[in-house]
């Protein structure tokens, strides 16, 4: 799935935040040798404290967490904004609700994957996020297409509110279950270019002031 062999040497320091201890230990066992789990947390308060203390490169963050003000994963990201430059967040969720996913991405998460993801896949995703790239699951790509519409942007004005034709193509392929490598092959572009497009889409998703986006997510309870 990845062309990351050159990065095998280094390890990524990760904190796992999930309120189910069984899931945390299972996930820990699933992650491969490139990943070093340096901390765990089960509530919003614990997560904020642990993240501030160990300053990991990546936080695997459950969207739904007890404690805090009830904001779950979103609240953890907001509270850790001081570390924005050095720590990236990858949202993990069992919920398919667009509302939850879009909220956590807009709070600053670099990607979103479902909890049923396999060990190697999540390890790749962690490495990717650690490298500053975005991780889109097929479902998240589907949300993006649904929220931004499937017709490309024509004028530069609404650049933040629309996806470019190329970005749409990339999102469509990801929604169809293609890996980044397969997307690159299909579109005859480099993996790096795919990553650039995905990061651009993520930025639009986070920054777009398009009020429909929030409204859309609220209305769309589940796909």
């Amino acid at each position: 799935m990845s062309a990351l062999s050159e990065q095998v040497a280094r390890t990524v320091r990760v904190v796992i935040v999930d309120d189910h201890a069984i899931f945390r230990s299972g996930l820990k066992a699933d992650l491969d040798s490139r990943i070093d789990v340096v901390g765990e947390a089960g509530t919003v308060e614990q997560a904020i404290a642990v993240i501030a203390q160990v300053q990991p490169e990546v936080v695997l963050l459950d969207v739904h967490l007890p404690g805090g003000l009830g904001g779950g994963g979103r609240e953890v990201i907001s509270a850790s904004s001081a570390l924005r430059g050095s720590t990236s967040f990858l949202a993990l969720s069992v919920s398919d609700a667009a509302e939850d996913v879009v909220a956590v991405i807009r709070a600053g998460a670099r990607g979103y994957v479902t909890k049923t993801i396999s060990g190697p896949e999540i390890s790749d995703a962690v490495i990717r996020v650690a490298d500053g790239d975005a991780v889109f699951s097929p479902r998240l790509a589907g949300f993006v297409l649904d929220a931004f519409g499937t017709s490309p942007a024509e004028i530069a004005d609404d650049e933040l509110d629309r996806l470019s034709a190329r970005e749409l193509e990339v999102m469509r392929l990801i929604a169809r279950g293609y890996s980044y490598k397969e997307v690159a092959k299909e579109l005859f572009i480099s993996i790096k270019t795919v990553e650039t497009h995905v990061s651009a889409v993520l930025r639009k998703l986070q920054l777009s002031s398009r009020h429909e986006l929030t409204k859309w997510a609220a209305e769309r309870r589940l796909l």
């Binding site: 097929p138 279950g177 293609y178």
Partner: peptide, 19 residues
């Protein structure tokens, strides 16, 4: 292994991808 299905419907038609 896993099967991915993607459905896109718009004004111009519907497309289904099964992978």
């Amino acid at each position: 292994g896993a099967v991915s299905v993607y459905l896109e419907s718009s004004d111009t038609g519907s497309e289904v991808f099964v992978r």
